[in-house]
Structure formats: structure tokens, C-alpha cells
Amino acid sequence: MRLFALSHQSNHRIARVVSWSCAILLAFLSLLPNELEIRTGAPDELEHFFAYFFAAVLFSISYPQKRFFVAGTLVAIAGLLEALQVFSPGRSVRLLDVWFSATGAIFGVVVASLIARCNVRPLRSKQ
């Protein structure tokens, strides 16, 4: 007996909450003033790539039928957030950052799609 088993609907709801929380965190961290910026110590490009990669994986799990939309939306958000940094003290706009963010988003959707494809089991006919 599984006491803590969650229904498929509950898992889906949790995935969406985590995805949107990640998107809010991306926006918040992207628009912080330079002196409050939180860094991992990794190169900027890797931070951008992996932030959008994991966001794309999360959104692809949350919205499995809309993966192309997820990729396009995250690419657009990457460009928008980078452009808005012009209004954040000490921050600057770098097209290279947009490119790495967009690449991370696309790779994240591709990886999530491949994982989903591997997890689908064909229906077997009853004999």
C-alpha cells in the first residue's frame, strides 16, 4: 500500500508550479542590479545555457504537447530579459548571453522529448 502515492494529476500540477517558479526565478535573477547579482562561479555562458536548459526540461514535462511552443517562448523570454537588463543598474545587454540561453532552451526541449519518447511503451495486444 502506497501512502504517499500521488495521482497523475497531482504530479502534473506540481510540475507546473515548479516550472513557473523557475520562470519567475529566471526573470528575477536576470533583472537584479549588478551589485546584487548571484553568481555560481561558472562562466556566464554556462550559467545561461543551463538555466534555460533546466527551465525547458521542466516546462516540457509540464506541457508535453506544447514543446515547440515551450522552446519558442523561452527563446523569446531570453531575448526580452536580456534587453530589459539595460534598465538594471550595472547590467549590460550581450547577444552572446541570448544565444547561450536560447541554445539551452532548445537543447532542453530536445532532451525532454527524447526522454519522453524512450519512456513511452507500445501497447501490447492481449492474446
Results as ranks from 00 to 15, higher is better:
L25Y: 01
L25F: 06
L25H: 00
L26N: 01
A27I: 04
F28L: 11
F28W: 15
L29K: 00
L29I: 02
S30N: 05
L32E: 05
L32A: 03
P33V: 05
N34P: 00
L36H: 13
I38C: 00
R39H: 12
G41A: 00
G41R: 00
G41T: 04
P43M: 05
P43C: 03
P43H: 00
D44N: 05
D44F: 02
L46N: 07
E47R: 12
H48F: 10
F49T: 08
F50W: 12
F50I: 11
F50S: 11
A51P: 06
A51C: 08
Y52A: 08
F53S: 06
F53T: 10
F53D: 05
F54V: 11
F54K: 05
A55M: 13
A55N: 09
A56F: 06
A56M: 04
A56T: 07
L58T: 09
S60A: 11
S60K: 06
S60G: 15
S60N: 08
S60L: 07
I61N: 11
I61V: 14
I61L: 14
S62I: 10
S62Y: 10
S62H: 10
Y63F: 15
K66R: 14
F68T: 13
F68I: 14
A71S: 11
G72A: 05
G72V: 09
G72C: 09
T73K: 02
L74K: 00
L74F: 08
L74M: 06
L74P: 04
V75D: 04
V75H: 03
A76M: 12
I77H: 00
I77C: 06
I77A: 13
A78F: 04
A78I: 08
A78C: 08
G79K: 04
L80C: 12
L80E: 07
L80R: 05
E82F: 00
A83L: 15
A83M: 10
L84M: 06
Q85Y: 07
Q85R: 07
V86W: 14
S88Q: 03
S88R: 06
P89R: 00
P89S: 03
R91P: 01
R91D: 02
V93R: 11
V93T: 14
R94E: 15
L96Y: 11
L96A: 15
D97M: 02
D97K: 00
V98G: 01
V98L: 03
W99S: 13
F100N: 09
A102F: 05
A102I: 09
T103A: 15
A105N: 04
A105K: 07
A105V: 09
I106G: 08
G108D: 04
V110K: 07
V110D: 07
V110A: 12
V110S: 10
V110Q: 09
V111D: 04
V111I: 14
A112F: 01
S113R: 01
S113E: 11
L114V: 15
L114R: 12
